[in-house]
Design a binder for these strands. Structure first.
Lengths: 109, 109
DNA sequence: GAGTAATATTGTAATATTGCGATGTTAAAA
DNA sequence: TTTTAACATCGCAATATTACAATATTACTC
């Protein structure tokens, strides 16, 4: 008990849920917004200052976001530069939008 | 500890996260799909049979979905008929899509 | 009214998530 | 090569989530 029963659901539903989970925490939403707003390049743990969470916490959230491939990472000196993987973000957008389209089309019949 | 620090985030981010959380479990995704596919009306705990979870669990997930106003409910005899609140679903769709638009526009600059 | 079907609520066990201090790791700087 | 800055990882405490059995509730049926 306590664990989500992934096996009883189909792959599509599991994946959509997995993607949605990334966006289901305000800190991760804020992180993604911040990184995407940081034009032309390097960010790092300005995030720690910008968002009011400890460095390990931010790092943890970043790795959640990375898990679905939403971030590009490049070493820049001793600091890291993150940027949004735009294709992946688009893929997520399409995935979620398709879900809404489906649930809406059939609902309006 | 253990609790999300809602106070350090702005209302928009908190709300987006709250909405995304509803879609962050495969059972809830399945429930929403199923209800939306059930044209013209009444469903109930066919859900219990369709999705392989116990009745209290389904009931619990339904109430999570209801919390953000995504379901219309109407008593029909001793059973309940759920349907999607289409306006609300649209609102969610727009909310999420706006987020993607914002993060993408600035990312592509 | 007693029985029953459909759902909600309660209580609880198992597990996951959030957050952070302490500690590792890595690479530039001194 | 020691120091330091920027992260990542580990370990743990607090809380949340998932799932279900047991039990309530509600409204029809007999």
């Amino acid at each position: 008990m306590g664990t989500t029963k992934l096996n009883i659901h189909d792959t599509d539903n599991n994946y959509l849920a997995k993607v949605a989970k990334v966006f289901s925490h305000p800190a991760r939403v804020a992180i993604i917004k911040y990184i995407s707003a940081c034009n032309s390049g390097c960010i790092c743990n300005d995030l720690v200052e910008e968002i009011g969470l400890a460095q390990p916490t931010i790092s943890q959230h970043l790795s959640e976001i990375k898990k679905i491939g939403l971030l590009n990472q490049s070493a820049h000196g001793k600091s890291l530069s993150y940027s949004i993987n735009t294709e992946k973000l688009n893929a997520c957008r399409r995935l979620i939008n398709d879900f809404f389209v489906k649930t809406q089309v059939s609902a309006s019949r």
